[in-house]
């Protein structure tokens, strides 16, 4: 059964549309005025002088049967694929770092390369934009560039360097 709807012309639609448009413009302008950089300071703004701490953990992983360093037991990610294929995990080093915005810091690796870290930006949402590279001094022989956006306290990993018959896992995290 087809139904027909009878509607007579009305003059209520035009004012309503105008009101909607005004509301939309008002909302957009209000939101724009509330953005950081337009006068209001951001909630999570950090002054440049504030240093962020962090750490770089270097792990030697092997597929041969072995032991897992108990200090790594709390790292849930290392128990998940593909890391679970390593049956031997030993922590070679743990380095503490301090990074200010725009500052760089190097961390020596046991294979002679260096991890160079730079805190590029602290985003208004609190996340950190971090640049990292792993190379021998004055060379670009392994990882020329890695740029990561990280929640403070959440690590990221660089895996794959060969060392002493195993594979290096480099875990990096920066805290607020």
């Amino acid at each position: 059964m087809k139904h027909w709807i009878k509607c007579s012309p009305t003059n209520t639609a035009v004012p309503t549309l105008v009101a909607s448009a005004v509301f939309m413009v008002f909302s957009a302008s209000t939101l724009a005025a509330a953005q950081p950089g337009n006068g209001s300071p951001p909630v999570n703004a950090s002054p440049r002088a504030t240093a962020h701490t962090g750490e770089v953990v270097v792990i030697l992983a092997k597929e041969e049967a072995g032991t897992v360093d108990p200090t790594l037991a709390s790292m849930t990610a290392l128990r998940r694929p593909p890391f679970d294929s390593f049956r031997s995990l030993s922590r070679l080093s743990r380095s503490e770092i301090q990074l200010g915005v725009g500052q760089e810091q190097d961390v020596l690796l046991p294979n002679g390369r260096r991890v160079r870290l730079k805190l590029e930006q602290v985003l208004p949402n609190g996340k950190l934009r971090i640049r990292a590279s792993i190379n021998r001094p004055d060379k670009k022989d392994y990882l020329p560039l890695l740029q990561v956006v990280a929640t403070p306290g959440d690590p990221f990993f660089v895996v794959g360097q060969s060392h002493q018959g195993g594979t290096l896992i480099v875990g990096i995290k920066v805290t607020p």
Binding site: S74, R91, R94, Q105, V107, L108, R116, P155
Partner: peptide, 16 residues
């Protein structure tokens, strides 16, 4: 010249 961090002694694990 970025400073070079020195490895810490064995201690707390990453994220502990």
């Amino acid at each position: 010249t970025p400073p070079v961090a020195t490895p810490l002694v064995e201690g707390a694990a990453l994220g502990s």
